[in-house]
Each structure stands twice: as C-alpha cells, then as structure tokens.
Design a protein around this nucleic acid. Structure first.
Lengths: 166, 166
DNA sequence: GGTTTTACGTCAGCCATGTTGACCAATATA
DNA sequence: TATATTGGTCAACATGGCTGACGTAAAACC
C-alpha cells in the first residue's frame, strides 16, 4: 500500500511539512511574545505599546507617518497608543527641524530603560534558540522568514536599514 | 577605533542580530497571517475563528478542553467563537462515546473546504519560502522556531503528534 | 447511593486594539 | 494665494481577549 502511490505519499509528506511550519509559526510567535506581554500588562500596556516603543527606540526621531508605515495600522490606533505613552512619560516628541509639522518621536530615559528590559528579555530567548540551533540554522531561519514577507515589507526593511546607516 | 574594543563590537553585532530576529518575527508573522485575514474578513470571521477551524481540522473529534489547551485562551472566548462557527455551519459537535459530557468537535463539509482554502493559501507562502531558501534552511528554520517555544508547548506538540499517529 | 469533581455552557460586564469617517490646524510647496 | 501634506481629534463600532458567577449533566469516587 505504501509503495503503490509514491506521489500521493510525497504530497502527504509535503502537506505535513507545510502544516508543521504553519503551526510552529503560531506557537513560536505566541510564546515569543507571551513573556513580554506579562511585563507590559504590569504597566497597563499591551502589544501595541510594545511595538511603538520598540520601533521608536530603534529609530529615534522617527516621524509619526513613518511609524505608521512600519506598523501598518491606522493613524487613530497609533495616536491613541502614542498619547498614552507620552502621558506616562515613555515617549517625547519634538517638532521637525526642516518640516515643523512633523513631530519627531523619541524615547525618554524611562522609555529607553523599559524598551531595553523588554528587548533583552526577547533577545535572551532568541540567543538561547540560536545557541541551541547553531549558526547554520540561524541563517536558514532568517532566510525562510524573509521568504515569508510581502515584497512591500522587504522594500521597507531595506529602506529602514539605509536610514540607520547614514 | 574599530580595533580598540573588539568585545564591544562583538556585542554590538550580537544585539543587532538579535534585533533582526525579533523584527523578522514581527514582520513575517504579520505578513503570513495578513493574507488569510482578508479572506476571513469576507466571511465576518477573525483570527480566532481561523485558529479554531485550523486545529479542529487538524484534530477531528478534539474535545473543547483539549482545544482550549492548544489555544491558551479562556473557555468564554472559545465558546463565543465556537457558537458562531456552529451557527454558520462550519463546525458540528457530537457527544463523546465513552464520556458523554464531552462534545467532540468536527468540521462540516463547508468547514473542511474553508479550512483547506485558508491552509493552502498559507501553505503556498511557506512552500515558496522553503523553495527559495533551500532544504537546509528549512531545517534551520524549524530548529530555531522550536528553540523559541516554551517547554510546555513542546510537550503539548509532542502529545498531539502521538494522538494523531494512533 | 450520595457526594464531589469534571466538562461544558452561558450571562454580564470590562478592556485593548483594531476599524471608518469627518473635521481641524499648521505648515510646506507649487 | 491655493493646494497638498502632516498630524491630531472626536464619535462610533467590531473583535477578541479577560473575570466572575452560576447552571447542568455526567462521571468518578467513597
């Protein structure tokens, strides 16, 4: 029976492997974010706050519209989160030097400390996974993840890298 | 200057690599789920429905409590989603043969077709990423993702695999 | 056989985070 | 000066998490 339909068997294995990838993505993302989520909850924040803090910390002086482009949410959703973060003293803004309509976003000292706490937590998880899996695995991991991206996202990441390297 | 603090430099590269992982996870997960999200939206469903449909399809006859264990959400959250799915004819339940308190969950024909549509969409994305990245990369990808999991999740996945192989 | 535990459902209400649409102010630019 | 852009804000809504309380049927146990 097993030898009669080698093609069917191959397809079955293929689907099984694809499902394994889908499921691993789900579980890994959940566990990866879960740890940070509980720290955020202590400060009455959610993932939306985390994302804003992370990308402001990563791109100090980023404009609101650039942050919107990265996060792919509406202005209103971001605005709500940002007002909270500014009120609680994690983020400050200052008008753009050339274009004074822009409000460039920065983390405060508190914000920097908090970002660092969250990122090192997630970083430790990654470091452990990388260490277990080995260097070659890390390369493969990143290659596959990049392959999962929309082409828009790829462009966007490339652009961000350029901006940082100036 | 670059040669004076090789350790600092190494740490910088390390942090940069960890951040790259964190960001790739965020973008890849978003893009990976985004495509399915828009199909789900057409049927007035969200990701919660997708997860339920997926895991019921993957484990036909699963009990509500086992599904809760997989999803890690509250009974009430799942209940809301399941009632909707049963009302709309994607899912049916039947009492357990040995334990009649249990309500074993199954996809209907409609449910199977819908699950298949969503999974093949996500599967195609994975297949493309796997193809681009190569076989070794896929192995590395899966090893790193498994390294990101909580130990509870690892046990849980192992147990699911056993159940399916019976 | 009676008690306790388990599996599941349901009602009410809260919160975070996403959405749309409309509208306003300041400023840059053609 | 007219128009476009950047950003904020208000109202209203949906989804999907959560808690707590309570009910019911069936299984398990003493």
């Amino acid at each position: 029976m097993a030898d009669v339909k080698p093609i069917g068997k191959a397809l079955f294995l293929r689907e099984e492997e694809l499902r394994r990838g889908i499921e691993l993505m789900f579980f890994a993302y959940r566990d990866f974010t879960g740890e940070a989520d509980s720290i955020l909850a202590e400060q009455n924040m959610g993932r939306a706050h985390h994302r804003a803090i992370y990308f402001i910390g990563r791109n100090p002086g980023i404009t609101v519209s650039d942050l919107l482009t990265i996060l792919c949410i509406t202005k209103q959703s971001l605005s709500r989160v940002l007002s909270g973060l500014m009120q609680d003293g994690y983020v400050t803004q200052k008008p753009g030097a050339t274009d004074r309509r822009q409000r460039l976003l920065y983390l405060t000292g508190t914000g920097i400390a908090f970002e660092s706490r969250l990122t090192s937590l997630q970083g430790r998880r990654f470091a452990a996974a990388y260490r277990e899996a080995g260097v070659d695995a890390v390369d493969g991991f990143q290659r596959v993840l990049r392959g999962l991206l929309d082409s828009d996202t790829i462009d966007q990441i490339a652009q961000q890298d350029q901006t940082r390297d100036i």
